[in-house]
Every structure is written in structure tokens, then in C-alpha cells.
């Protein structure tokens, strides 16, 4: 198993993490920031799912014809984390709506400029 192909998932995770974080930091638009935040979180979801993968295993469903399953626990964990992620995004979007209503803008520089 070469470093590149065997750990492909993890490389993807690392790339997505950085991309997400980069968007959060460098983008001034609040919606884009949230997109970045979601990518960032999704990277972690993929990370957990990859951890749970067992080579050659199937989905963890009880059936006599299969004996090798993926580890179900990380999947369950990440289901929780996805729910949390959705809640966070929803709340953030709600905040953005109210920010837009009171500042008339969703650009970071505009908002900062108004409250001097």
C-alpha cells in the first residue's frame, strides 16, 4: 500500500480542512464564510467515516452471509456530529439574516466599518 493511495482519504481530509479554513479566514462575505465552515466540518466527517472502514468489510448490517463489517461506532458518532453541524449552520444563517436586516450588508468590511 503506497503512501498516496492507501491514505488517499486522509489526504483528501487534510486538503478539505485547509480549504475550508482558508475560506473562513480569507473570505469577507459571511455566506461564503459559512460555506467554508461547512467544508471544514465535512472534512472531519469524512475523517471519521474513513476511520471506521474495515478493508473488505460491508455495511454493518446483521446478516448471515457476511462476517466482516465496517466499524459502526464512528458512523454513529459522526451522525451526531452532522446533526450538530446542521444546527450550527442553521443558527449561523439565522444570524446572517438578522445581520443583513440591521446592517444592510453581509460583507465583513462593511459591517466593521459601520460600528466605528
Amino acid at each position: 500500500m503506497s503512501l498516496m493511495s492507501g491514505l488517499f482519504n486522509y489526504w483528501a481530509v487534510a486538503a478539505l480542512l485547509l480549504i475550508g479554513l482558508g475560506i473562513v479566514v480569507w473570505q469577507g462575505n459571511l455566506i461564503k464564510k459559512l460555506v467554508g465552515l461547512s467544508i471544514f466540518q465535512t472534512a472531519v466527517f469524512i475523517f471519521y467515516i474513513s476511520v471506521g472502514k474495515v478493508a473488505g468489510g460491508t455495511a454493518p448490517i446483521l446478516d448471515d452471509s457476511y462476517s466482516q463489517y465496517s466499524n459502526p461506532l464512528p458512523h454513529v458518532l459522526i451522525l451526531t456530529a452532522i446533526v450538530v453541524g446542521i444546527a450550527t449552520t442553521a443558527l449561523a444563517l439565522a444570524l446572517v439574516i438578522r445581520i443583513k436586516a440591521s446592517y444592510g450588508s453581509v460583507e465583513e468590511s462593511d459591517i466593521n466599518g459601520q460600528d466605528k
Partner: peptide, 13 residues
Amino acid sequence: LWAAFRYLIVGTI
């Protein structure tokens, strides 16, 4: 609102 949003970003990260 703005403070909460920024806290949200940092807190989530």
C-alpha cells in the same frame, strides 16, 4: 449579532 457570529465561527472551529 456580529459578535455572536464571530464567536460562532471561532467556537465551531
